[in-house]
Amino acid sequence: MVTLRKKLQQIEENWLKKRVPASERRTLDNRSLFVFPNRWGVVFGLLTLVVLITGINYQNAMISASAYLLIAMCLLHIFQSYKNLAGLTLEFDRAESAFPGDWITVILRVHAGDRERKGILVGWLPDRYARFNLDKGQSRDITVRLPAKRRGALEPGRLLVATSWPLGLVTVWSRPDLSVRAWVYPEPVHAEPLDADTQEGGDQDQRRKHASEGDFAGLREYQKGESVRRIVWKKFAQTGARVVRDFEVSSAKPEWVDASAWAHLETERKLSAMCEALLALYNQHKPFGLRIEQTEYGPDAGEAQLRRCLLSLAQYEGR
């Protein structure tokens, strides 16, 4: 049974690959849209049959007519649902990276095109999706959050776009492949480097101290793009204002996080340790750099540098 199902899934997957090839932007059309009554539609159909038989058996013309009305509404439902999706354009805009256990935010841009859209679902089964309406001509960013699990690429696969508007009896859906891909950073886990002497400074204790204290320089307003970890939540709870601790960037000598310092660990643990080290340096507001195999990132300080380094860890494919 299981293998048969797998096989069927494979066949469907291959068929879809040909019929709806991957692209980062797709306008839904008759090639990529599928229509089928859902289970409520089947229930509704059975009830319609009951009405029809009641009409026939009681020779009641108006009850029969009501059954025809229900049939007519179901038929029109197919077209209305189809038109509700056809012409809708979807684009994969970006996906924000996250640590394992956090949520990855996938941002999809949808364009309504020349008609109003109602009750459209976009996302991934079973429960990661967003529902929205669109006005005629409206474009909008839709956010879908996916759980970040393991370090590396997160590829949720084909997207599901579906609607049951207007009456919820027929579902029209499409499974475009927008090549959605997100990166999951390594889990920051502290591990002692192989030989502290090979590292600059070697002041393990000093580093710890700085990590906890930092060169605190006051509070300032939160800016978009900054790590939410720096928000002073206590302040937020009191006043509702998002403020972050501002630190003076220390002009100290840049420190390097080198992969070879953890060469004794297996890849994932090594990356985790490097991640932890990067975060610690970042929290000290020192310029830092990442050296992994022959590639160097930085040295530099700040959020952007941290993100670049973490991304390279997430994308690391070597051993």
Partner: peptide, 16 residues
């Protein structure tokens, strides 16, 4: 929704 269905209903009523 009802209004759209009525022409179709009339057609079915005549030919069913």
């Amino acid at each position: 929704i009802l209004g759209w269905a009525i022409p179709l209903l009339i057609f079915i009523y005549v030919v069913f």
